[in-house]
Design a protein around this nucleic acid. Sequence first.
DNA 1: TCTGGGGTCCTAGGACCC
DNA 2: TCTGGGGTCCTAGGACCC
Length: 411
Amino acid sequence: MDVPGILHADLDAFYAAVAVLEDPSLAGKPVAVGGGVVLSCTYEAREFGVRGGMRVVDARARCPQLILVDGTFDAYTEYSRKVFEIFTSFTPVVEPISIDEAFLDVTGSIHLFGSPEDIARQLRSDVREQTGLAVSVGATTRKFLSKIASQVAKPDGMIVVQPGGETAFLHPLPVSYLWGVGPVTKRKLNEFGLETIGDIAEISVQSLSSMVGPGAARHLHALANNRDARPVEYSREAKSVGAQSAMRAQRRTMEELAPVLQLLTDRVASRLRKKARSARTVTVRVRFGDLSSVTRSATVATPTASTSALVHVARKLLQKVLDEYPKHEITLLGIATTGLGVDEPIQLAFGVDDEALGGGTPEELEAQALDASVDELRRRFGRDVITHGSDLLSGRTDHTDGLSDVMTRDD
DNA sequence: TCTGGGGTCCTAGGACCC
DNA sequence: TCTGGGGTCCTAGGACCC
């Protein structure tokens, strides 16, 4: 490729920026979005050392005048939608990474909109004008390199690395800029004296392999030498769907945990149905007081998106964990589903006509109705049915034994 | 420094089949 | 019946990313 046609576009401090747009009086102030932890914060807050992922109490210690605002997920979704609309006005080849980040392949758009550099500039200005948000852009010949370039360009900047200039840009950067180098790998590399990406590029894969293992070694060595053939993919199906809920450290019984498991499973099943997918493998994860965690999984023969079927499997797995770790305090319960297949769309909404449920015996219909999502129940009852797994444990709802009680309570 | 929720990918061992 | 090789599927854990 002879043009830097792969763009990585990344909105700056997205949640915090939206909060400021929604309340202009916050402009120029240190603002953080989050509850227990900081999800996002303005650059004014970062000057005080506040960072995403930090506990709110720690953030306040560093910045007493920090303004904390609640997240408004609807607003994020709306802004994100607008931004992605702008992305797709430049190229159909857009690969979303998250709500605020995407790769764009603009090599096919050059004859329409000019060089990648021109496109990046126009894209940044369109996003700014139409949404008020700042987006940083990296433009290079490789996916991973564009991602790095956009990070270096932040805040509110763009970096274009022309073909031939990749090594000069890449090699002086610290190893932690590489995709796949987290705290553990960084520590290992540093212990062997590897500080920059150039250091990784120069040593052999064999040496690297003895530090981080063969898989990571091949991966990191390739990236450090600017090898990354991955194309921008514009339609990727999710490979797993999960939900989890943290809780105060405490020994808990199956009776206490069952409603939480039910809620989480219902959330997962409902999202599966919304995507018209079904799952074969159910994984239950439990985190203990010492932050260690275990998973237990099981695979069923037939893919399913039914809450009751998934709960049935999940309960057995949870029981297994409770039996194996009878004394541990539990701080998190999670469920994930993998082995996703594509489903025929199913209508299992609570309250719809029996015909829409696909018919069957009264028992079957009831079982299907019980698979209605919490969303559906909310819609139907117009009440705050359940908000969070921890509510169940703290007794803030009178919900005690799974979904059926929710229905009887409010009916 | 271990606090939240939603994900991806990799490794490794065991069971099972041919 | 055992030994060898190859492949697939399942389970469990770990590192990393946003």
